[in-house]
Amino acid sequence: MSIPPAIVAAARMGWHWQWIQLMNGLAPADAKGNYRRPPSQHQQARLPAEQELSNRSADQYPRLIIGRSCPWAHRTWLVLQLRNLQSSLTLHLARADHKAGRWQLDPAWLGCNSLLALYQRCGSPPSHRATVPALVDPGTMTSQSPQLLGNESAQLVEVLNLWPAAKDAPDLAPSHLQGEINGWQKLLQPAVNDGVYRCGFARNQAAYDKACNELFDTLTQVDRSLSNKGPWLCGDQLTLADVRLFPTLIRWEMVYAPLFGCSQQPLWAFPHLWHWRQRLLALPGVAKTCDSHAWREDYFGALFPLHPSNIVPAGPDLAKLVNASAPDQR
């Protein structure tokens, strides 16, 4: 027996109203329906003294706390891997608890089994959201109070680029390229890194169309730049500009195209970006930071307003997808 059209129409109106309420809690928007990322509640990132770090035992190393699915945390993990900072910095993976809506620490650390508890242990204001990435200094024998050294990815990648490392560790922000790195940050952060969320969290067609057009116009600009001045965004040298873009593009087919509607063009339609992504994934240590299963679990499983069924779709093998030859576009 078919459902009467009037009931269907009423159900759609009711569901749309509920969807708006859920989205307002998940992702704030302006009066025109454009997603607006809330101001971050972060502390100014700080770098410990090199001599102090060298005198510590392994259990006293600062910890970089990240969540596998978070693209902002992914940036910091990439710098840790690319510069081989494991000799004085410990990685701690937090797990997304979808039901509680917070990050769990498994195993617990400093007596804390959640990131919120750790933030509070570090003396953060109760109003601050406990987000990843977070760089935490557990203290030493003479200073037992743990400290939050930073929790904003753009700052933390700069701090980690200055972190004591081997002489052959790459400098991802050389002074002569700082202007270009900053230029890429100003372009890519709103249009691409945040742009995929502006597509996914748009409240109406006009807001989505605006975000989508800006996103793909910017990808066209990046692809053109790589064709003229590659292989990296700033030319011959890998920099923080590449590190900041990679977490967004490596999640493209797994999350942002199917769930956020970033589907105006496939990524292989940008051949220079396609090869750029291949090169970066092939760098030592980078593949270890990429867990496409965790990405799908956390995005499709947690963003209820966008995917009410919570069914996590299957996805292709990430390495095979990235390393595939782009279709001939002639």
Rank of each mutant, 00 (worst) to 15 (best):
residue 241 A to S: 05
residue 177 L to E: 02
residue 207 A to I: 07
residue 206 A to N: 03
residue 210 K to F: 06
residue 225 S to R: 14
residue 201 F to I: 02
residue 240 L to Y: 13
residue 214 E to I: 10
residue 174 P to H: 12
residue 168 D to Y: 03
residue 207 A to Y: 10
residue 192 V to I: 15
residue 186 K to Y: 00
residue 199 C to L: 11
residue 229 K to N: 12
residue 229 K to G: 00
residue 226 L to Q: 03
residue 212 C to L: 15
residue 192 V to G: 02
residue 224 R to N: 14
residue 239 T to W: 09
residue 234 C to I: 05
residue 166 A to D: 14
residue 190 P to V: 01
residue 211 A to P: 01
residue 206 A to R: 02
residue 219 L to F: 11
residue 164 P to L: 08
residue 172 L to Y: 00
residue 205 Q to H: 12
residue 181 I to N: 04
residue 223 D to K: 13
residue 187 L to Y: 02
residue 241 A to D: 00
residue 178 Q to A: 11
residue 204 N to Q: 06
residue 168 D to G: 05
residue 171 D to K: 04
residue 242 D to E: 06
residue 203 R to L: 11
residue 226 L to T: 06
residue 224 R to T: 14
residue 174 P to L: 10
residue 208 Y to F: 15
residue 241 A to L: 05
residue 184 W to H: 10
residue 180 E to F: 03
residue 171 D to T: 00
residue 225 S to W: 14
residue 190 P to C: 08
residue 219 L to Q: 06
residue 171 D to Y: 01
residue 237 Q to A: 09
residue 166 A to K: 08
residue 202 A to T: 01
residue 236 D to K: 12
residue 194 D to N: 15
residue 232 W to Y: 15
residue 191 A to C: 14
residue 214 E to P: 02
residue 224 R to Q: 15
residue 240 L to V: 14
residue 225 S to D: 09
residue 171 D to A: 00
residue 208 Y to K: 03
residue 190 P to D: 07
residue 166 A to E: 09
residue 227 S to G: 13
residue 199 C to M: 13
residue 222 V to W: 05
residue 167 K to C: 00
residue 216 F to H: 14
residue 236 D to F: 01
residue 223 D to A: 09
residue 221 Q to A: 13
residue 170 P to L: 15
residue 242 D to H: 00
residue 186 K to S: 12
residue 219 L to K: 10
residue 202 A to H: 03
residue 218 T to P: 10
residue 181 I to F: 07
residue 239 T to V: 12
residue 198 R to C: 13
residue 183 G to L: 03
residue 225 S to I: 07
residue 199 C to W: 00
residue 198 R to I: 00
residue 238 L to D: 02
residue 169 A to M: 11
residue 184 W to P: 00
residue 242 D to C: 02
